[in-house]
Amino acid sequence: MNQEQESETPSEKVAAFERAVQQHAIQSYHLRLYIAGASQLSTRAITTLTAICEKYLHGRYRLEVVDVYQNPEQAHADNVIATPTLVMLEPLPQQVFVGDVAHSRRLAAILGIPLPE
């Protein structure tokens, strides 16, 4: 282990990092947002999420908005109990976020969004 790590030169590490950034930039996203009707939380979540996606993931995301009132079977299939719930279907691993997507460093990190410092 140690030997392997040491064999990796700093320049190689930088190269790997660059590759990852490159990959991230071309990564496409499949998001599903569960909301409950036209509640304040729902609308806020839709607005925020759409804004984030448009700003940072323009052209390489797919966002489905599912109303649990209208499509309870779908909510059931994704085991949704809280709303709003954001299910990130791609990239894998699948992840679940609960809340109105107001401020999420983690979500931003995963989506490859520069953190608003």
């Binding site: 409950a36 085991n79 949704v80 109990i81 809280a82 997507v101 107001a102």
Partner: peptide, 26 residues
């Protein structure tokens, strides 16, 4: 069956349990 595993869930702000209500109601 309503199975929720905390490790799968990340909280990103305010929410309610409307989904639970709907499933129970359903």
């Amino acid at each position: 069956t309503i199975h929720v595993d905390r490790s799968e869930i990340e909280e990103t702000g305010e929410y309610d349990l409307e989904g639970l209500f709907i499933r129970i109601g359903f």
